[in-house]
Design a protein around this nucleic acid. Structure first.
Lengths: 142, 142
DNA sequence: TGCAAATCGGAACGAATTGATCCGATTATG
DNA sequence: CATAATCGGATCAATTCGTTCCGATTTGCA
């Protein structure tokens, strides 16, 4: 029931990347420095996020990564699924392949599917723009 | 983001126990046989569920376990929390102790708290009675 | 055109949590 | 009072997670 640390870090990394949206490409090392996360970990996350189609990576000198889509079109659900795979609380609701020993007789599965949909909906309702927005309190205390 | 297998088994076990509610106490071995789960696993689950106050266990010959409360007063959230501890997607929202390095400056945490509350609400809305109820389709195919 | 620097991508290692199993402590019964 | 059956805690293996490292690829400059 706990989100993996990688997924948590991925959200922070995407937030940092969103702040550079529109500017030149950013290297993974810069994002690591800004977020305070270990550089190798950020590299691994960038790889996964690129494969998932959330980031566009350019190799070579002067390369780096940038958002593949506008920040408004990226949601928390996208980021979590990119790192952890499909959102599935139980094995029952995963990719329509019920591996439960009870099979179709399981009375609990329909309820799990409902809870799963509620959770996914809550994550899909939060766009990256909302996460990257700086609250007013932070501006005041700065 | 995945529920542990123990929690899944706990739900099945509680469902089986609810079917015996009102009758004599049931032993963990019987529940294991009915659910098809390994007997030692069911024993461990019964211990945890008893400590959490969801089951009342009686030792000695002829002992066993029974629901500590009416099935209508037990929700999915209760069972999950009994096995996995407090429902917390991230370490930020756990027991009001933010261990995040960013501390109060984290802009993501309020959103996690919201998602966490939505998830908990979805689990708390499903009572054990609803899980243990046998659908009409099952009666027909039997 | 060739070299060099900087980047991403995948693979390998170590650690932690989870899951299953076993044995001892406890208690009502005959 | 002895017995038998039960729960409770402790121990051990396995899978997954998290971190780290090294190689392949590409662009920029001389």
């Amino acid at each position: 029931m706990r989100l993996s640390n990688l997924a948590d870090y991925a959200v922070v990394t995407m937030c940092a990347a969103a702040r550079h949206c529109g500017f030149a490409r950013v290297s993974a090392a810069v994002l690591a420095e800004e977020t305070g996360l270990p550089a190798p970990t950020v590299q691994k996350l960038v790889s996964q996020l690129s494969r998932a189609g959330l980031l566009n990576s350019t190799r070579g000198a002067g390369g780096g990564i940038k958002l593949a889509r506008p920040a408004a079109a990226i949601t928390l659900a996208d980021i979590v699924e990119a790192v952890e795979g499909p959102i599935a609380l139980t094995a029952c609701v995963e990719q329509e392949r019920p591996e439960c020993a009870l099979g179709e007789r399981c009375r609990v599965r329909p309820h799990w599917a409902l809870v799963n949909e509620v959770l996914r909906g809550a994550l899909a309702d939060i766009p990256l723009t909302q996460l990257a927005r700086v609250p007013e309190e932070m501006k005041l205390e700065a």
